[in-house]
């Protein structure tokens, strides 16, 4: 109990770190995921290939390996001088975008083909068809899997702690290294994650209900 009260600033900072990292990488994953899903259903073969390659690469690589790549390969080849937080954001965002993409694509596939045909037959471009007709109708089916994906992302962000990014899981390491009772630290850290994941599932349940009414 005392561990929490005595180190409230550390816990608070870690908690906020996890929330921010989850939010930022979730946003990045969402944007990338929808775009890549668009690529995967597009009529342009190179885009489809790119989308498939993206998903294959990021869905099948262990996240820890992506972190290692972000830390030791990306700075050398692509962008030197990235701070750890940005590197963690990229690794988490890219990794999660592959899962978001597949969830969105499964949603797209539930929209009857006739909807897209009707949109194209009144002269909409592929992009308009996707944005105005298909994606809005796919949203409802995509929300439940997205909820799971973002909860997974929250917990995956713990890996960033091991790479010395300030976040909740890192607090555990910091304090147990100092010799405090491990059980209590674990409990508080776990509760911190629970608060975030419960919030996410609550928000998504709300969204789901709202969508249900809208139609």
């Amino acid at each position: 109990m005392n561990v929490l009260l005595d180190h409230l600033p550390e816990f608070r900072e870690g908690f906020i770190g996890t929330v921010l990292l989850t939010l930022a990488s979730g946003l990045l994953a969402m944007v990338l995921g929808v775009v890549i899903a668009g690529f995967r259903v597009s009529p342009v073969p190179p885009l489809r290939f790119f989308g498939a390659a993206w998903v294959t690469l990021f869905r099948n690589t262990p996240l820890t390996l992506l972190f290692l790549v972000a830390w030791f390969v990306v700075p050398v080849i692509f962008a030197p001088g990235l701070n750890p937080w940005t590197k963690a954001l990229l690794a988490l965002g890219f990794y999660t975008s592959a899962f978001v993409c597949e969830a969105v694509r499964s949603g797209i596939n539930t929209v009857p083909l006739g909807q897209a045909e009707a949109a194209r037959s009144i002269g909409m471009t592929f992009f308009q068809t996707l944005r105005l007709i298909v994606l809005p109708q796919a949203t409802r089916t995509v929300i439940p899997p997205l909820s799971s994906i973002f909860i997974a992302l929250t917990k995956n962000s713990a890996i960033a702690g091991a790479f010395s990014v300030t976040e909740l899981f890192g607090v555990q390491k910091l304090l147990s290294d100092k010799g405090f009772a491990i059980a209590w630290i674990f409990l508080w850290v776990a509760l911190g994650y629970l608060v975030i994941t419960f919030t996410i599932s609550g928000l998504f349940r709300l969204l789901e209900r709202r969508m249900g009414v809208a139609r």
Partner: peptide, 25 residues
């Protein structure tokens, strides 16, 4: 070919489907 120009042309060709295909949302 598929693209902007085809989209423009489709706008000039009305199509009515067996299954109506009205935008459900």
């Amino acid at each position: 070919q598929e693209g902007k120009e085809l989209a423009r042309l489709r706008a000039d060709v009305g199509m009515v489907f067996q299954s109506f295909n009205l935008f459900a949302h």
